[in-house]
Nucleic acid binder design. Structure first.
Lengths: 200, 200
DNA sequence: GTCTATAGCCTGATAGAC
DNA sequence: GTCTATCAGGCTATAGAC
């Protein structure tokens, strides 16, 4: 049971992050105003500045908060037990499921790749992706010794993420079906492709 | 030699599209002001409204213009001569090269996938991607009869595009090298992966 | 910590001269 | 077709009461 603090400022600061994150994910930094966030939180615009010095700080805090949560859950799919094939299957299935369940994270990631400055991208890399990326690289190396592990690790992530990125337009492309948005179907397809079952 | 028009409005309207496109690609719809565009073109803000009724119309016109150009050049890499393997190799090489040479198109595509409304996404699908997508689907079918062609076509495009999407962050990920941004290296990697040379 | 009020700037868009 | 001038409103951020 947490000790009751003399002020409730910490609580509000957290609520601001939680409420602003989906707004930033949906509309981007320039597409969301401090008024929008204040309205979503249920306080006045001026009160936001009691917790964060400016809009940029609020954005970075919201982003860091969201990314810190993801880092550990991605990592959890990467234990070292079993054959490389089993570990690949486990990782792809888990990562696909996690991405499917978090559209806000996906959108925020895409926006950062487009608009993030050096500092924010380095934060994103260090805080979220370096550890799982290294594990995937190692996995990639075990499965394909003669292939550039960095390239393959990127390809693995891209194979999964691109299906979600294109969800909005696949609806208008021939052969697009509901099941193509099912994480189980996507994961199985990616596993087949990566294990060379396709095109051989 | 074109007949000289009594007005030069067509010329200016085109210049506006050409100058505004890189701005929209770099900063997005909400990140660019009509004043920014006017300054880039070299006319006053008010003059823009002589050519386009509002900001949204200008944006859609610029987008359509850029996408119309791309459609034919993507299509040109998809003739039907040679074995499926040769056709795959030719398409991947050409598509990768084209994407590498047009960062504005890539950025605009990513932004539309994030922010495009139904109407714009349908336009993008019909005007740019349906034809090449069908050709890739057919190619995919010939190379992997038991695999969902729609899924595989998306994967092929994703394998290529994701390497460019992550250019900004791969710099901070372990094993990232300059050569990973070379379209020849990327294309060769994707071809290897798709033809099952990796992971088998 | 939160409020109301507001400063100062930038925005999309328009009016009307030339 | 392009200009200058301007409007009405939204924006970030601050001041000061409670």
């Amino acid at each position: 049971m947490p000790i009751k603090k003399p002020t409730d400022s910490v609580g509000t600061a957290q609520v601001i992050l939680d409420k602003s994150l989906p707004l930033f994910a949906r509309s981007g930094f320039t597409g969301v105003s401090m008024r929008d966030i204040a309205k979503a939180v249920g306080i006045s615009g001026a009160a936001l500045y009691h917790h964060y010095s400016d809009k940029q700080s609020l954005y970075v805090a919201a982003m860091s908060h969201a990314f810190a949560d993801k880092a550990s859950s991605i990592q959890s799919a990467l234990d070292n037990t079993g054959t490389p094939e089993q570990r690949l299957e486990r990782f792809v299935t888990s990562f696909t499921e996690q991405m499917a369940n978090d559209p806000d994270f996906r959108a925020l990631l895409q926006r950062e790749l487009l608009d993030g400055d050096e500092k924010r991208l380095k934060l994103l890399a260090d805080k979220v992706f370096i550890e799982p990326f290294n594990a995937i690289k190692q996995l990639a190396q075990e499965m394909a010794l003669d292939c550039d592990a960095h390239l393959l690790a990127i390809s693995m992530a891209g194979l999964i993420l691109f299906h979600f990125e294109t969800e909005s337009i696949r609806r208008y492309l021939p052969g697009g079906l509901k099941k193509h948005n099912d994480p189980k179907v996507i994961a199985q397809h990616v596993i087949s492709l990566l294990t060379g079952a396709i095109g051989k």
